[in-house]
């Protein structure tokens, strides 16, 4: 198990290095630096700023300096937030995004798994068709349509929640629903397929033959195998949650990392864009390793390999 972990982590190093290199040169080749504004600034001030941020050095010097800064977590000052570093921004806003992501994941699992299990046990009845058609809707509808519509309906017309902000617990509901509904739909479909497969297996028949109540058969014997597709989906889902957070945090004015990333892209803060992309890449790689580990723990068949 430990060996598996170390190998996977070792494999991720060249990937991260490649991502860093691609991103660095992409960002570096962008026209219009952070100081090209509409307002005219005296050339010597721009010169001084360029010197301060180290933009005058040769590209390879900047490449290795920036690499070293990211490896030692000693980030340079940012151009769009004077006095702050990318580390400050990420440290402050990522917990918000993480919380949003956890709520969304909870929504996805709490809605998705029971719906999928129900649909699988009542296959080809109304209890199967109705939620599965709803799930199809949930998968096709984009986040930026669901979000404003939920805000309009529950926030403006019914007045149950605030339309934007991130202060108390009720502010979490709409963003979490918006982000989580797509995954709830997806999880429901995956659970249904997984459960249908498992429910036809011999060991489930054995459990039924032993005279166990159906509830125990489904929830204790079948569910464990039935949620396997969901577990392997969690890795890609995280990448999707990251992208989704850009939109959801913009809609609901959530002060998370996604909104900062979009803002950094809009204001051409190249070093913040670079640091954030690297952070996201590392996060997603780590999460994928964790998901693989979880799969091995849950599935005894994989453990032997």
């Amino acid at each position: 198990m430990l060996r598996f972990f170390l190998i996977r982590l070792g494999q991720s190093i060249p990937t991260l290095l490649a991502i860093y290199t691609i991103t660095f040169f992409m960002v570096r080749s962008a026209p219009g630096g952070p100081f090209s504004q509409e307002r005219k600034v005296a050339p010597h001030i721009i010169e001084a700023q360029m010197e301060y941020y180290g933009f005058n050095d040769p590209v390879y010097v900047q490449y290795f300096r920036s690499l070293e800064q990211h490896l030692t977590f000693d980030f340079p000052p940012l151009t769009s937030y004077p006095g702050l570093t990318a580390g400050d921004i990420i440290g402050e806003s990522f917990p918000v995004s993480l919380e949003l992501g956890i709520w969304a994941l909870l929504v996805a699992l709490l809605f998705g798994i029971p719906t999928g299990v129900l649909a699988a046990t009542k296959q080809n009845t109304a209890a199967d068709y109705a939620p599965m058609s709803m799930a199809m809707l949930g998968i096709c509808l984009p986040t930026f349509v669901i979000g404003p519509l939920l805000a309009l309906f529950f926030g403006v017309w019914l007045g149950w929640f605030k339309v934007s902000g991130w202060f108390d617990l009720s502010d979490r509901i709409l963003p979490a629903l918006t982000l989580g509904l797509f995954y709830a739909a997806y999880v429901a479909r995956l659970t249904r397929v997984g459960m249908l497969e498992v429910l036809g297996m011999d060991y489930v028949r054995t459990a039924r033959a032993k005279g166990l109540p159906e509830r125990i058969v489904v929830l204790k014997h079948a569910l464990r195998g039935g949620v396997m597709p969901v577990v392997s989906f969690l890795g890609p889902a995280l990448a999707g949650l990251v992208s989704g957070s850009f939109v959801v945090e913009t809609i609901f004015q959530v002060p998370g990392l996604g909104r900062h990333f979009v803002q950094a892209a809009l204001s051409r803060d190249h070093s913040l864009v670079l640091s954030t992309v690297l952070f996201y890449a590392a996060l997603i790689i780590l999460a994928n390793v964790a998901v693989d580990a979880a799969q091995i723990l849950l599935n005894p068949k994989l453990r032997k390999r």
Binding site: T15, I19, T23, M26, V27, S29, A30, A239, G240, V242, S243, F246, F261, V262, A265, R268, H270, V273, V277, Y280, A281, I284, I285
Partner: peptide, 15 residues
């Protein structure tokens, strides 16, 4: 490994 949206945003920043 990079979410598509991040990559497109990067490209939009570059060009």
């Amino acid at each position: 490994a990079i979410p598509f949206l991040i990559f497109v945003i990067l490209l939009m920043v570059v060009f």
